[in-house]
Amino acid sequence: MNLSGNLGPSPRSLEVEDLESFDRMLAAGAVHLQGWHAQSLDLRGRASALAGLDVEGAIFLGCTFDEGMEDALRNRGALIFPRLTGVPFNPYRSTLYSPGELYDGLADAPYEELPDARIYQWSIQPGQRHRVDATLASALHDHAIGDALDELTHSHPWSGQPMVGVMGGHAAQRGSADYAQAAMLGRLLARNGYSVATGGGPGAMEAANVGAYLSQADDDGLQAALDMLAAVPGFRPSVSAWARAAAAVVERFPGGTPSLGIPTWFYGHEPPNCFATHIAKYFANAIREAILLELCQGGIVFLPGAAGTVQEIFQDACENYYGAPEKVTPMVLVGRHHWEHQYPAWPMLRSLAADRPMADRIFLVDSVEEAVTVLLR
């Protein structure tokens, strides 16, 4: 899957994501801009430079120009995607989100006034999903996030580490045994050379990102962080208090190990966690789920969960069922009683896998330590 959402091969292009790069390439003698994709650049004051360039085939996404320059560039063959007004996000962004960006202002304002919440409120306004400008903005945004995610996963150190997904319910409360086990899983995965990816939300997802983030801390440090978080067990009734407890841990333990969160505004009631250092947040949940599965070529560990986790198990099973033998990835379900009796996904999964290449790539274990051992085989 192409993470940026392209349906087929595209010509070679050059993404220009900051003014420094733009100016440097012009200073080096660039004249022909065909294939250039300039994203969210403020190009005011550069009218004379732009006037001397061959811009046919160039694409400018959400850039700002001196008066009259936009029409001039369009008349000379450039494709201009305009800045969109009334939108509380940049649909042409060139990077993933950070927790600090989505929770900007958390120290002084309630969650409902922060960027993450404002974007969600925008997305659910009456009639929003049927408005052309709104659907265009969200589609452009998700394409930009996919593009940024593709760049991240092909850069150091991500490209040199297999990525393992951790799936599990959002209901696991801070301070609970389930939360501590999910944190231990993230810690063990990161310590064994895996990149950790989750759905980026609360519960088991947050815990796995916590464990990865603090993978280089000693045991006392991890326990201290878990104790701090336990003071606010869940994001209800106050997302603000929940997020501030996490921010306090990050402040006490800065510079943790990077990990990935891929949440969605489709589930607006689930806020993103603060321990995924890189956040690829999408509007379209179906795209987000498919990309999360595609990225986890090191396998996926499924912790106890309910409907959402069951859905993810069989989405992954479908990929493995029809995939080429070389592309089958491990599926590890943790919790025998949970997956055999409470939500009996394991018997169905085992039946599906029978006589298929995936048969020896599915596992049912009782502990996160066993799960990591299975992946390391």
Rank of each mutant, 00 (worst) to 15 (best):
Phe89Ile: 00
Ala107Gln: 06
Ala58Asn: 08
Gly100Asn: 06
Leu14Lys: 12
Arg288Ala: 01
Leu226Ser: 09
Leu53Thr: 07
Ala148His: 10
Gln173Tyr: 15
Met358Ala: 11
Ala109Asp: 15
Tyr92Pro: 00
Arg174Thr: 00
Ala197Gln: 06
Pro99Cys: 02
Asn192Arg: 07
Leu222Met: 10
Tyr111Leu: 06
Ser98Asp: 06
Tyr282Trp: 02
Arg377Gln: 15
Glu270Leu: 13
Ile287Ser: 09
Val365Glu: 11
Ala241Thr: 02
Glu101Met: 09
Glu370Gln: 15
Glu206Gly: 01
Ile145Val: 15
Leu79Asn: 06
Val301Lys: 04
Tyr120Asp: 00
His37Gly: 02
Pro11Ser: 01
Leu61Gln: 12
Glu270Met: 08
Ser240Arg: 11
Leu26Ala: 06
Ala117Gln: 14
Thr85Phe: 07
Gly299Asp: 02
Arg350Cys: 03
Arg350Trp: 14
Tyr343Cys: 05
Ala134Val: 03
Ser176Trp: 12
Val239His: 10
Ile59Ala: 08
Leu152Phe: 06
Ser155Asp: 03
Leu260His: 09
Asp218His: 02
Gly146Ile: 02
Ala246Ser: 15
Leu7Ile: 10
Glu294Phe: 04
Val196Glu: 01
Thr135Trp: 14
Ala180Lys: 07
Glu206Leu: 08
Leu303His: 00
Gln297Cys: 08
Phe235Trp: 10
Arg76Ile: 04
Gln128Gly: 14
Thr64Leu: 13
Gly203His: 09
Asp220Thr: 02
Pro162Asp: 02
Leu73Phe: 02
Tyr194Ser: 00
Trp122Glu: 11
Pro202Met: 05
Phe363Pro: 11
Ala212Cys: 08
Ala212Lys: 07
Trp265Met: 03
Ser98Trp: 13
Gly8Asn: 05
Arg12Gln: 10
Ala247Gly: 06
Glu270Trp: 14
His337Cys: 07
Gln181Pro: 04
Ile300Pro: 05
Thr309Phe: 15
Ala307Ser: 11
Glu151Trp: 12
Val332Arg: 05
Ala243Ile: 13
Leu53Met: 13
Gly211Thr: 01
Cys296Gly: 13
Pro254Leu: 05
Gln161Phe: 12
Val196Asp: 02
Leu303Asn: 02
Met228Trp: 10
Ser138Ile: 05
Ser40Leu: 03
Leu333Met: 08
Ala225Tyr: 15
Pro157Lys: 14
Glu326Pro: 13
Ser48Gly: 01
Asp42Ser: 11
Gln39Ala: 05
